[in-house]
Write a protein that binds this DNA or RNA. Sequence first.
RNA 1: GCCUGGGUGGCGGAAUUGGUAGACGCAAGGGACUUAAAAUCCCUCGGUCCUUGAGGCUGUGCGGGUUCGAUUCCCGCCCCAGGCACCA
Length: 869
Amino acid sequence: MENRKYRPREIEEKWQKRWEEQRTFNVTEDPGKKKYYLLEMFPYPSGKIHIGHVRNYTIGDVVARYKRMRGYNVLHPMGWDAFGMPAENAAIERGIHPSVWTNENIAHMRKQLKRMGFSYDWDREISTCEPEYYRWEQLFFLEMYEKDLVYKKRSAVNWCPQCRTVLANEQVEAGLCWRCSAVVEEQVLDQWFFRITNYVEELLRDCDKLTGWPERVLTMQQNWIGKSYGCEIAFPREDGNGAIRVFTTRQDTLYGATFMLVAAEHPLVTELAKGKPAEKQIRAFVENVRKQDRAVRTSESTEKEGVFLGSYCTNPVTGRKMPIYAANFVLADYGTGCVMAVPTHDQRDFEFAKKYGLPLVVVIQPPNRPLDPAAMTEAYVEEGILVNSGPFSGMENLKALEAIAAHLEKAGYGKKTVQYRLRDWGISRQRYWGAPIPIINCGKCGTVPVPEKDLPVVLPRDVAFTGEGGSPLAKHKAFVETACPRCGSPAQRETDTMDTFVESSWYFDRFCSPRYSVKPGLDRKKLDYWLPVDQYIGGIEHAILHLLYARFYTKALRDMGLLGVDEPFKNLLTQGMVCKESMRCTEHGYLFPEEAADGKCRKCGLEIVVGKTEKMSKSLRNVVDPDYLVEKYGADTARLFCLFAAPPEKDLEWSDQGIEGAFRFLSRTWRIVMDYLDDIYDIAPYRGPVSGNGQVLEGEIKELRRKTHQTIKRVTADIEDRFHFNTVISAVMELVNALYQIGRPAAGDRQALSVIRETIDAAVLLLSPIVPHFCEELWTMLGHGQGVADSAWPAFDPAVASEEEITIVVQVNGKVRSRVTVSAGEEEARIKTLARTDGKIAKLITGKELVKEIYVPNKLVNIVVRGNT
RNA sequence: GCCUGGGUGGCGGAAUUGGUAGACGCAAGGGACUUAAAAUCCCUCGGUCCUUGAGGCUGUGCGGGUUCGAUUCCCGCCCCAGGCACCA
């Protein structure tokens, strides 16, 4: 009996070794089998995996193993999103080379993932920081350059004047540099952009094809793209130098436009300010606004500020002379960067007009009370009837939208247009640890692409990391100095590297042919077999950027003929964040949970400031390393617990309360199997007649069999329809509890034992995607020759699963007052009679007027009565 | 601020299409076993009131509404989380 104890460590090592040796999860294309490509978002190798990863990858592994048991040829790969800022920060702070740091992290995390028993095809492992990977990305870049899908334009970055370096948004804390606390400035640089806007209509339209995506993600993407219909209207400048063009969706309010607003950083501002007495003041204002955060600038609560530019333009329909102002709340990169201000019907314009004493003209009247501009305390933004609007007065404002647009077009003052909120994707990073952009800048020839034969442009290793003075690459002479491929004269290499979102926009393609080393790095035949990804699983945090970029990139690669799908991810499961409060010591900054004890910092003993609860991330250090769970309880318990805690899409505030319960359940299951093992080893699962007169099972054995089939049904549906593994686990827990509750049959009662055998086999199979090592071991002990991973998913018999008796709830005036038990299939009339004559119900309804009776089949009867109680 | 979600016992959660609120588990309390402890097994467990019952009332963030019936649908508010284009 001693060798029959549940020893997770031993079992897990044994099965992990066996899966690896037998290459259980390595796959190749097999045209004879249905394929299933299951992908979890690959991790950034930050150092250690945390509970968020465990949750994500366990969810994926359960689905992968489940689909395998269902007979699919499952591709389930894993790799590393290996470029990124933290590696460079480590180099700056600790003098470790980013590649060393990254590869050490990968080695450690790979070991951790292997210890979790995930069913990956490790032969396909890729790491995006290797030239074998990014060389293809550089090739795609050249192709995109060729097709004008990539271009250069001036664009602003965060600049720390003290460190003389570019900062990521994350490195700016309340407007200050995170390293030196200097006030962060804005600097304009020439940067590379992908023309994602070329695909904007397709990206929007294809949302309809993504029926396997959560509605909320599609809504977020659509809102992000932000298509709006409106008009572009020209307001002639008083100085005769052409016109100011604005985009508006509210052309119905055009007759109420009394002044013009221009984004502070708009080139027009400098142009108009030139030579004016207020030029200095205007410059100062612009400088000030540049420093304001974009979110702050556009927030409703921010004080509206502006400065008069000393010039005027004309409202094309009213002829009114409109003063031109630069304003803080107008954005340069949306629409035309200029806005016609209608203070009576736009709240921001209203506040601005009040502050600077600008005129108000009401053009929309509400139905009930006429508006008096002098008495207005806020803008009227609802619908109404047009007034003061020339030929359009008297029209409903929504109807006037179309009429005014048509009028403007006819009169030549403007045209109907469509605007998008989506901007082109800036991919330039002034950093070392990323894929080099394969471009050479020549003094004579300008921008010259690196010839294909010279790819990859490999990141040089020997660079110095100081965190100061901009990109380390720019200071690397041997890298920068080169010859122009076109004219041969001395030229400089581009030193910007690509945004790491570029790597994650095609890694799922590379997984299909991870070692393919000839152009274009993607083996079309293999891609055609595996793509699209059937199920993609990852955090909701990626709902917009990563997923939108990957969709765009897929379409771009498709148009290069490299792959044959329009959309990369057929089905998407967005898991909720695993959150935890962050902890901060005034001396040592953010602390890892293990660096804190009793609210004090372990290093210095200072009181800890507990921050808000946020998603686990390395930068906040609010991460929980799963090692201690695996160490103490084993990977199976850790997997079980992560899934049992909540359904996948829900956010989870981490607590390991309950981990004991998960372990207890496995031990309990193990024990009951051991208890029956000798008695059922030679007995086949029950296969007797299913129902009707042939039904020979009685009492609790019959009930157990019903419960078994009900459990298979429920578990299958919960996995198949909604990935709710928490309810899967409770269902199996109930089945195991049922097994404990029945009286132990005699050793010779082969019929009863065969039912128990069926129950135990089913429980093991149902749990096997969740706790695979545990189930493999039990499956072997139960005498099955084939591994559980290669076994078929169990089927249920609906006849066995169906209940013979059902409980009908009886309500009086909507309140539950009694219950009656009837046999399944009992007639409605009989059930209603039973309900009315039920003792408790009869007491409540006698002497009262029966208003109506509602019957919901198999569920309830609601008797509605009127009268005194 | 804007966009997107969420809020149910002491805790994690269940209730899948408007139809029994609280499955399953944790914690807690009680009991059995034991010399003892651990482990295990069994029972109780939203709140409240009384007449302690097959009892009444109440209860799914807050306030309203629709309905025979609302955790579920609608309106308003509060709080929490994700994203906001250089964290990934």
